[in-house]
Design a protein around this nucleic acid. Sequence first.
DNA 1: AACGAAGTCAACCGCTAATTT
DNA 2: GAAATTAGCGGTTGACTTCGT
Length: 197
Amino acid sequence: MAPKNEEPTKKFVNRGAWTAEEDQRLAQYIEIHGAKKWKLVAAKAGLNRCGKSCRLRWLNYLRPNIKRGNISDQEEDLILRLHKLLGNRWSLIAGRLPGRTDNEIKNYWNSHLSKKINQTKPKPQPSESSTTTDEPKSEKSWEEIDQLEVSEKSNKEVGESDTSFNVDDFFDFSSEESFTLEWMNKFFELDEGLYFQ
DNA sequence: AACGAAGTCAACCGCTAATTT
DNA sequence: GAAATTAGCGGTTGACTTCGT
């Protein structure tokens, strides 16, 4: 279907770490022309990079309002809870944490939280199924997960939701930041009794 | 001080979904 | 409707740093 690599010629494509100059070129170009058609962006900005690489760099580092490092306890807690709910859906999780990127959340999870979970996780109950991962499947049923996915999809397709729970609508807080984290924690506190026990 | 192991994280890869032609 | 192109996602890799001996 899709081509393996979007670049026709890989001859002189830069790879690896971005230089300050490349960052500046990319940011400058996007500021003027916007962030779309990444292949074009790469070419027009005079970057010997593939479009994919430019996109990633912009989304993860150059984009405005990006927060880097220093993940707060509150954010960490939220990540844990959202991961429990959503599994490895990093972009979804990141979408609930203003200023955080999926890559950062994923890295943070892999290097910090997965270990933490493994350390603190209680021994599996004999009655429970023998899943070994920290995926949510052991916490929530597949039906519940599916329901989330279906309602997400149907909302995009139809533009309105039925009575089912919609995770995007429910967690959408594109504008209000500090309020959100507190509110989310409140929600999870209430919700914990239902879902996470 | 030197060296290997372990940890971290930016970037890449392969794939699918969505959009455009 | 089909094909081509673009966007986006999650998994993985590898360079670099930190830690332990």
